[in-house]
Amino acid sequence: MSGVLVIAEHRQGELREATLEALGAALELAPQTGRQVVTAVLADDPQALAGPLMGRTHGLRLMAHPDLTAFNPEMYLPVLEDAIAAAEPGLILMPHSSQGMDLAPALAGRLGLPLVTDCIGLTYQDGALTAQRQVYGGKVSETLVLKPASMYVCTLQGGAFEAPETSAVDTAGEEITLTELSPAHARRFVEYVAGALEDVDIAAADILVSVGRGIGGPENVPLAEELADALGATVSCSRPVADVGWLPKSRQVGTSGKTVRPKVYLALGISGAFQHQAGMKNSGTIIAVNKDPRAPIFAVAHYGLVADLFEVLPKLKDKLAG
C-alpha cells in the first residue's frame, strides 16, 4: 500500500467540512501504510479552496478546469484516473455524501477496485483493509475484512472521523491546469436549487419536539403540537415523516434537512438513523422516547424512556399543567 488519496469536496465556492473529516481518517491510516496523504482538489479555481487543507495533508494536487466548477462524475472520473495512475495510492477516501455516493461506486466500477461505503472505522493490516460499518438502520455493527488488494475505494460516514489540527503535517502543493476533459457520457449540471421557503426556522428553537415514524399518522401530529405549545417549543421531524408529507420538509432534521442545536431535543418515536443523528446529536440535552430499547437514538440521547409515545405525550402534558 502506498499512501492515501483524499478527494476533496466543494460546493458553490466552499470546501465542504466532510473533506476535513476524510483527512482525519487518512492521517490516522498514513502511519499504517508508511506513506503520505495526498488530497486532490478538482475545481475551476482549486487554489481558492486550498486554505483549510494546509497543514492537514502532505500533498496537494490542485487540478483546474472551468468544467470542474460544479461536481459532475463524468468530468471527475477521467481526471481522477490520471491522478490515480500517477500517485498509485493504496486507499482512496471520500465522504459518504451525495457526491461520494455518485463518485465512489463509479470510480471503483470503472477501475475494478474493491469498494466499501459509509465506513465509521478503517484499519489496514498485512495488505488488507478492515472496515467498520453500521447496518440494519444502525441496530447492528458490521466488520468487513476485505481480500488483499493493491488499491481500495472507501466512503466515510459524516461525523465518524475528526478533522485534524491545521498544523498536523507540512503541506506541499502541486498545480495542474487541465487543458481538456474527456467525459464518457454527456451528463450536464444545470443549476443548484435552494430548499423551499419555510414557515418556521427549526434551527432557531430552544426546544424541539421532534416526531418520527412512530407518530403513526398525520392525525397524531396535533398531539405533538399541543405539547410543543405547552412548552413554547417548535415541532420538527425525521425524514420518514417529511417523506410522506405529515409535516413539511422545512421541519426535517438531518443530513438532507436542517442541523439543529436546541437546548432540549425531545425525540418521539424516532429510531435514530445515522442521517438523523447527524442533524441533532449536538443538541444540549437529548431525551428520546421509543418503544424499542435497541433503537439507535438511545446511543446519542442523554436520557431515554422506553415507552409508548401515545402514553407519554398526554402524561407529559398533564405534568406540565400540574
Binding site: R16, S98, R187, V190, E191, G195, K249, T255
Partner: peptide
Amino acid sequence: TRELEANTSERVVLP
C-alpha cells in the same frame, strides 16, 4: 433533481 446536503438540491441532465 438530486438531493444534496443541507436542504439544497441540484438539477442535472442525462442523455
